[in-house]
Design a protein around this nucleic acid. Structure first.
Length: 723
DNA sequence: GTATTATACCCTTCT
DNA sequence: GGTATAATAC
């Protein structure tokens, strides 16, 4: 077979990596150097040039988006669908393993995957039962501690807490949590990895399955592997397995999730005679963008070090826009995208990226206002929305009656006359009977242990769940979900909800039906309906919601910096570059975390191919109140000559909305000084007047200084010079 | 006992 | 800005 197409258009380093005969290959690849490309071509090379069966290949990545992308590119390269090639996230593959070997893993066949939200709920319940003070030990911290243990591969029984009271509390929760999850057939994200690791390690059948099946294992974004993932990897490899790891220490941004970039070094240590190939030529960005990225990342101490270069032309300078507030920032971004579109670009070439999901709102509003279509990745994930979780809890319960979490959610939404008291009774009965809450409720009803009113509604509820269960084998999934939604009474509840909220909730529920419809189309005609439903349920827990309608429309892409990794766009906006936001306040006092923030910024900058915009706002509303932050330090770390600074037009007034109790925006605080006025202070330098209080000699003004941040000053002492 | 309304309180990033 | 808990109305 002619395989030259695999090697065409590769540079020497890429070709060396693709065709390497070494059993253990490490590719250190800078941003935009063709990392994924090497991975895809290497798979094609192994299959088409070396005759490897796709069935014997495993490709692992970190996000669903990256996995889908890789899978598509491999199939395009091979010009053949290869469903037998395993390609997925660590979590997805672990999940698949547990489904295949659920008996060996001691899990019920219908076990459910729970998200961080569900996990927190369970922790809160346990803390209540165990009488642990949640003011003293915030459940979130307990959750974090517990997941950290899990990510290190530790079970409750093997943990030593010493005298650390918080750890003791966390361990107490962990112990009960483990039991609860086993009893109810629940598996959280960290548990997927941990259990799957333990399974491969301890079960020779499973282990030899992996060893025999996977002759070639490829791992993308290797710098993001955590302890348990690395250990899992070591377990599934035989001493013949071909291993390809691709990574970039400068793009390690998951330290907070237990990722250890040192695993890159561990690779060379664990696999003797590992060959390392470096890819340092960048094909993605203009030299301006690359220079900015290099300058920025050179501020980090902790690096393996590499030298990214490019042959591409200089390109346009980076545009820095200083906005008055987040609405102004959003408006600027929206207008600029519209202009891009009007001058022949397409919406999908533009991406707006930000540090935290909450920032998307202002941008969405601005895009909506001028009717620019957009698509959000992540955010409050579709399947994490309240109304969707409520609807899905019925489905989950139909599949896994032992799932008490779903039982409680379903029976309480919509309200059906079963309140906390009855629920508590059911919980107690289930402990007494040694069954699930669902079974206990049924038994209580049968044994006449319920008041008539409660009995009636519980009987109806049980019948409804049975009905759903039946429907799942005789109706299309989307049809079954449609009925579930319409007969559950959820719609009626949301119809009564005031304002837009209820309306969007109902729209989301309709979208759930659409998502199910799209999902079921991918299955062959003769697939049992119940299997489609089961697969849907599994996907929902692990997938951020790419099955959403409108996925392929031409739309601006909105996402966090984290989810932007691995993607590239001609036009990129990095928004909200303000201290405390980016770098985030919770990462500012630890040097390690600050370096991770900088790597995050590096990831953001290197997403841009042609043109990069950086924006920040002087005033930003955070949790309802105004915050004034100086521009991010990362802006200053980019050489000034690469930046073209733009300030709002003088004619733009502060459209910032003030409460009526406050002064009109054009109010003169004092002679020559009004809101928005630029002034000079002899100690703090230049700044802009943002706010004031009081009058006369006691008047105080708030000024956001360019270099000194925002300060309140007494006007009569400040000696401000009007500029 | 349950449903509704009001107040308190949190708030990064992803699987 | 939204949700979870607490206090009150049904």
């Amino acid at each position: 077979m002619d395989v030259s197409h695999i090697l065409d258009e590769l540079n020497d380093a890429q070709r060396a990596a693709v065709t390497s005969d070494d059993q253990h290959l490490l590719v250190l690849a800078g941003a935009g150097s063709g990392k994924t490309r090497v991975l895809v071509h290497r798979v094609a090379w192994q299959i088409q040039a070396q005759g490897l069966n796709p069935y014997n290949v495993l490709a692992v990545t970190f996000t669903n988006k990256a996995a889908n992308e890789m899978s598509h590119r491999i199939q395009a390269m091979l010009e053949n669908p290869v469903p037998e090639l395993w390609c997925g996230t660590f979590h997805g593959i672990a999940h698949r393993t547990l489904k295949m070997f659920n008996k060996e893993a001691n899990l019920p066949s219908g076990f459910s995957v729970i998200d961080a939200d569900d996990q927190l709920r369970i922790i809160k319940r346990i803390m209540k039962d165990e009488k642990l003070d949640d003011a003293l030990w915030p459940p979130k911290q307990i959750q974090w501690l517990m997941n950290t243990w899990k990510e290190e591969g530790k079970r409750a029984k093997s943990i030593k807490t010493g005298n650390d009271l918080q750890k003791k509390a966390a361990l107490q929760v962990y112990t009960h949590y483990e039991k609860k999850c086993i009893d109810e057939g629940l598996v959280d994200f960290a548990e997927l990895l941990l259990k799957s690791f333990e399974l491969v390690q301890s079960n020779s059948v499973v282990k030899s399955y992996f060893h025999k099946r996977f002759a070639s294992v490829l791992v993308d974004e290797f710098q993001d592997t955590n302890t348990i993932q690395f250990k899992w990897l070591l377990e599934i490899l035989s001493n013949q397995t071909l291993v390809t790891a691709v990574g970039d220490d400068d793009q390690s941004i998951y330290g907070w999730r237990g990722a250890r970039a040192e695993n890159i070094l561990g690779f060379e240590k664990n696999f003797k005679a590992a060959n390392t190939v470096r890819l340092e030529q960048n094909y993605r960005s203009t030299s301006v963008i690359l220079d900015a990225a290099n300058a920025l990342i050179s501020n980090n101490q902790n690096r393996l070090g590499k030298n990214l270069w490019t042959e591409s032309n200089k390109g346009e300078p980076i545009t820095l826009y200083q906005a008055y507030h987040e609405q102004d920032e959003a408006r600027y971004i929206a207008d600029t995208i519209k202009n891009w579109m009007n001058s022949g670009g397409s919406y999908s070439e533009a991406a707006v990226i930000y540090r935290s999901n909450a920032q998307s709102r202002a941008i969405e509003e601005a895009l909506l206002r001028i009717r620019v279509p957009y698509r959000i990745y992540g955010g409050t994930r579709f399947y994490e929305r309240l109304e969707i979780k409520n609807a899905m809890s019925y489905l989950k319960l139909a599949f896994n009656p032992g799932d008490n979490l779903s039982f409680e959610r379903a029976i309480s939404n919509p309200p059906r006359g079963i309140g906390q008291k009855t629920l508590q009774n059911i919980r107690e009965a289930s402990i007494k009977f040694g069954t699930s809450n669902f079974a206990a409720a049924r038994q209580m009803s049968e044994e006449g242990l319920l008041a008539t009113k409660a009995k009636n509604s519980i009987d109806a509820f049980i019948a409804f769940i049975e009905d759903i269960k039946n429907n799942l084998s005789i109706l299309a999934l989307s049809e079954a979900i449609d009925r579930l939604i319409n007969f559950s009474g959820l719609i009626e509840v949301y119809e009564k909800e005031k304002g837009e909220k209820g309306k969007t909730r109902i729209e989301n529920l309709e979208e759930l039906v659409t998502a199910a419809k799209i999902f079921e189309e991918d299955f062959p005609q003769d697939t049992p309906l119940i299997d489609i439903a089961a697969t849907f349920l599994d996907n929902v827990s692990l997938d951020a919601g790419d099955a959403q309608a409108g996925a392929h429309e031409d739309a601006v892409q909105l996402m966090t910096l984290h989810s932007a990794k691995g993607l590239e766009f001609p036009l990129v906006f990095m928004s909200g570059l303000e201290e405390t936001l980016f770098p985030h306040i919770r990462s500012m006092d630890s040097p390690d975390q600050l370096e991770e923030e900088r790597r995050l910024c590096y990831v953001g900058v290197t997403r841009a191919k042609q043109k990069l915009y950086i924006t920040y706002a002087e005033i930003r509303k955070i949790h309802g109140s105004d915050v004034f932050n100086p521009p991010s330090r990362f802006i200053r770390e980019i050489p000034a000559e690469l930046i073209d600074e733009v300030r709002p037009r003088a004619s733009v007034t502060l459209s910032y909305e003030r409460k009526s109790s406050q002064a009109p925006k054009d109010f003169k605080i004092s002679e020559g000084i009004s809101l928005g006025q630029r002034v000079m202070h002899k100690k703090f330098g230049q700044g802009i007047v943002l706010n004031y209080e009081g009058t006369g000699d006691s008047a105080r003004v708030q000024i956001n200084f360019d270099n000194a941040g925002s300060k309140w000053l007494v006007l009569s002492f400040a000696n401000l010079e009007v500029l």
